[in-house]
Write a protein that binds this DNA or RNA. Structure first.
Lengths: 337, 337
DNA sequence: CTGAAAGCGCTAACAA
DNA sequence: TTGTTAGCGCTTTCAG
C-alpha cells in the first residue's frame, strides 16, 4: 500500500494538517517544518491520493470531452487542440466518444450531474433545448465546439460566410457551372453542411447565376462516397467546371475520381474543400481553413475561464475563416475559354 | 447541491446501508424496500457520487491511455479500438498524450502510483527496464501495445516477419532493385522500424540479392519527408524498381512524388507500405496490415482480464499480419522485361 | 505557525 | 433483511 498523509505526519512528527499545508503550498508554515516534511515525503515516496483530494475539495480536476467517433480528421484535429492545451494545465482529459444518437443522449444526460468532471467540452454535437437546459441546471460549465446554442458558451465559425467565401472564389475565377457537394441534411448530426449550402446559394444568387438543382448533390460524408457523387456530377450533360465540397474529405474524394477519369485539375475542374485538415495540404486542395486545432485550444481556454470565475454572460467565440489557395483552383478552366 | 445517499435514506425512512445495497444490486434486500428506495432515488434525481465510491472501494473505474501525440493515423486507429472497446465496459478512458520524451517519463513515473487509474494502456512507447520495474512494483496492471518488454503484458506484431513478408512479396514479383525506406533509427521512440529493416535485409540475403546501402534510406517519418527521400532514391543512377516503406504514410509520400514525376505505378515503380491505415486503402497502396484497430481491442481485453484476476503469468499476444495487395504492386515492371 | 477534529459521499463489516 | 458504524485519504476549519 502506498503511504498516506498520516504516515508522513507520523514520520515527520507533525500533524496531518501541516503535511496538507505543505502539499498545498500554504504560506503559513515555517521554512523549517516545510523542509522537514518535504524530506519525509521524498523519503517515503509519497504521492497524495487524487481521489481523496477530489472528494474533499469537490473538484475533480477533470474535463470531459464528448465527441463523435474518432473517425474524422476534423474531430481528431480539434481533439488534438484540446488535448495539448489541457496538458498545460492541471486538468485531466476524459474521453467520451459517441457512436450513436443514444450514446450522445446518455452522455448528455448523465455526465453533467455525475460529479465526474469539472467541466464539459462538447465537439460537433449540438444539444437540444432540453439538453441545454439540463446543462445549465447542473451547474457544470459547458463549452460547445463547432455547435451552437443560445444558452451555452461556444466556439464556432460562420458556416454561411464560409460557404459564400468558397463559392465566390470560384465565381471570381470565372466559373459559372459551380456545384455544391454536401452531407445529407436530414441524417447529419450537424447543421453546418446546411449553412455552407446556404452560403453557396447566396453567392450563386448574388452573382446572378442559375440555381441548378442537378449541381447540388448530397450524400453520406466521406471520401469514398464523394467519389461516387463526383462520378454522377461528371456524367451530367453539362458537368460543372468547379465543385465546392463541404468538407476536405469530400474534396479529396472528388480529386480521386477526377484523377481516375483523367480530368485535369484545375484546368478541367476546380475543386475547393472546407476544413483545413492536414490531408488537404498533402492533396494540394484549395480549402476554407476553419482553424480546427485552434478551436480546441480556444474552447479549453474558455472553459477554464468559466471554471475560475463563472461568467455572468454567455461567451461566444467565432473563429476566423481563411481561404487557402492551393493547386486545385486557380487556372482558368479550358471550358471557360 | 445534488442529493446524497443520506437524503435518499432519510426520505425513504431506511438506513443508508440499505440505499447502498440497492445501489449495488445486493440480493439481500427485500423487493418492497428496493422498490421504495428506487422510487425515492427517482424522485430526488439522485446519482451516486463516483468519487466517493472510488475512495471507498479503491477502484477508480478508469483506464489511463498513454500514447504519442495524436498526429499519426496509426496511433489514432489503435486509440479508436481502445475507445470503442472500453465504451462497452464500465471503465472510463483518461487520455495522456506524450509530446516529448520528458512528458513520457513524467507519465511513466507518476501515473502508476497516483491512484488515478486502475490500469494503464501504453501505446507505441516502449519502457526502459527501470520504468517497467516501477510498473510492476506499483501493482497497477499495464498492457503495452506496439511495444514489448519481458516483464510486461503486451500486444504486438512480429516486425521482422512483416519486413520479410513485404520484401519477399516484391522479390516474388521479379524485383531485384528493392529499396527500404524507414524512420531514423536513433531518434525514433520506437524500434519497430529497425525490425522491419532487419526483415528487409533478411529477405534480401535469403534471395541472394545484393545489400545496396544506397537503397536503404532513413529519415524523419511522415508523408512529406518521404517525398523528399523518394526523390533522392529516384535520382540514383540505378533507381530501385520497388520500394518497401516502413509505414503507409511514407508509402503514400512515395506515391505523391512518383505521381509528380510522372512515374507509372506499378509499371515503373512498385510500392508497398506497412500499417494498414485507412489512407492506404484510399491511395490503393499495397500494404502489410498490422490490425491497428484490433490491437486496441485486444489490449483492452487483456487489461480487463488482468483487472479481474491478476494473472500469474505475463500475457503476450502477437497479432497476425496480412498482406493486402492493391494497385501499387502487381504488374511486372517494365524495367524487368 | 501548528495540531486536532470534522467532514466530503460512499462501501462494507458488524450487529441486530 | 436491515440499521449503524468505521473507515477510504485528503482539506479545512477552529483552537491554541
Amino acid at each position: 500500500m502506498s503511504p498516506t498523509i498520516r504516515d508522513v505526519a507520523r514520520e515527520a512528527r507533525v500533524g496531518i494538517g501541516t503535511v496538507s499545508r505543505v502539499l498545498n503550498n500554504s504560506p503559513q508554515v515555517s521554512d523549517k517544518t516545510r523542509k522537514l516534511v518535504l524530506a519525509v515525503i521524498e523519503e517515503l515516496d509519497f504521492t497524495p491520493n487524487p481521489i481523496a483530494r477530489r472528494l474533499s475539495t469537490g473538484k475533480t480536476l477533470t474535463i470531459g470531452v464528448i465527441l463523435p467517433n474518432l473517425t474524422r480528421s476534423s474531430y481528431i484535429e480539434r481533439l488534438r487542440g484540446v488535448q495539448e492545451t489541457l496538458a498545460l494545465t492541471k486538468y485531466h482529459l476524459v474521453l467520451f466518444s459517441v457512436g450513436t444518437i443514444s450514446d450522445r443522449d446518455d452522455y448528455f444526460r448523465t455526465l453533467p450531474s455525475s460529479s465526474m468532471v469539472d467541466g464539459l467540452l462538447i465537439i460537433s454535437l449540438p444539444p437540444t433545448d432540453k439538453q441545454a437546459k439540463r446543462f445549465k441546471e447542473s451547474g457544470v460549465p459547458v463549452v460547445l465546439v463547432d455547435a451552437d446554442h443560445p444558452d451555452l458558451c461556444s466556439v464556432t465559425i460562420d458556416d454561411i460566410e464560409g460557404g459564400k467565401l468558397a463559392t465566390q472564389y470560384l465565381v471570381n475565377q470565372g466559373h459559372k457551372k459551380i456545384s455544391y457537394m454536401g452531407d445529407i441534411l436530414e441524417t447529419a448530426f450537424h447543421p453546418s453542411t446546411r449553412y455552407r449550402h446556404q452560403g453557396y446559394l447566396q453567392a450563386i444568387r448574388e452573382n446572378g447565376l442559375p440555381e441548378q438543382p442537378e449541381y447540388q448533390i448530397f450524400g453520406d460524408s466521406g471520401r469514398l462516397n464523394a467519389r461516387k457523387m463526383a462520378d454522377s456530377l461528371f456524367s451530367l450533360k453539362e458537368p460543372p467546371t468547379a465543385i465546392f465540397a463541404s468538407s476536405d474529405a469530400q474534396g479529396i474524394g472528388i480529386l480521386d475520381k477526377a484523377n481516375e477519369l483523367g480530368l485535369k485539375v484545375p484546368e478541367d475542374l476546380a475543386v475547393i474543400g472546407f476544413d483545413g485538415i492536414l490531408e488537404a495540404d498533402y492533396a494540394n486542395l484549395t480549402t476554407i481553413d476553419q482553424n480546427l486545432y485552434q478551436s480546441g485550444v480556444e474552447s479549453v481556454q474558455m472553459l477554464l475561464a468559466c471554471l475560475e470565475n463563472p461568467p455572468a454572460t454567455i461567451n461566444k467565440k467565432i473563429l476566423p475563416l481563411e481561404l487557402i489557395a492551393r493547386k486545385t483552383t486557380g487556372v482558368s478552366p479550358k471550358s471557360l475559354g
